[in-house]
Simulated assay, not measured.
Amino acid sequence: MRKRRKSHLGQRLSARTWALAADEAGMSTVEYAIGTIAAAAFGAILYTVVTGDSVVAALTGIIGRALSTRS
């Protein structure tokens, strides 16, 4: 009878282990967190690039040429 009880216990543990491994309840929260961190990092990099001197000078030049009136 002990062998049967151990076998049944082993089956229950195996089933529980597979259920825990297949459980994805917290995955969406982790995915949102990683996505939020990636978006914040991308925003910081984009802000650094756009506010750099060369980009500001180029945009100012483009806007200045667009607004200049030539007859």
Score class of each variant (00 low, 15 high):
1 M>W: 10
4 R>N: 15
4 R>P: 00
6 K>S: 01
6 K>N: 03
8 H>W: 11
8 H>L: 08
9 L>K: 07
11 Q>Y: 03
11 Q>L: 11
12 R>H: 07
13 L>P: 01
13 L>R: 08
14 S>Y: 05
15 A>Y: 01
19 A>T: 08
20 L>Y: 08
22 A>I: 04
22 A>R: 05
23 D>Q: 12
25 A>C: 12
25 A>R: 07
27 M>D: 06
28 S>D: 10
29 T>E: 09
29 T>G: 10
31 E>A: 09
31 E>P: 00
32 Y>E: 06
33 A>W: 00
34 I>W: 06
34 I>V: 15
34 I>F: 03
35 G>W: 08
35 G>T: 02
35 G>C: 03
36 T>F: 00
36 T>S: 09
36 T>Q: 09
37 I>Q: 08
37 I>W: 06
38 A>Q: 11
40 A>K: 14
41 A>E: 10
43 G>V: 00
43 G>M: 02
44 A>P: 00
45 I>H: 14
47 Y>D: 07
48 T>N: 11
49 V>S: 00
49 V>Q: 02
49 V>R: 10
49 V>P: 00
49 V>A: 13
50 V>E: 04
50 V>R: 03
51 T>L: 13
51 T>V: 15
53 D>N: 12
56 V>A: 04
57 A>L: 02
58 A>S: 14
58 A>N: 02
58 A>K: 15
59 L>I: 07
59 L>D: 14
59 L>V: 12
59 L>T: 06
59 L>C: 15
61 G>K: 02
61 G>T: 06
61 G>V: 01
62 I>Q: 02
62 I>W: 01
63 I>P: 00
63 I>E: 02
65 R>H: 08
67 L>T: 05
67 L>K: 14
68 S>M: 12
69 T>D: 10
70 R>Q: 13
70 R>L: 07
71 S>C: 13
71 S>V: 05
71 S>L: 12
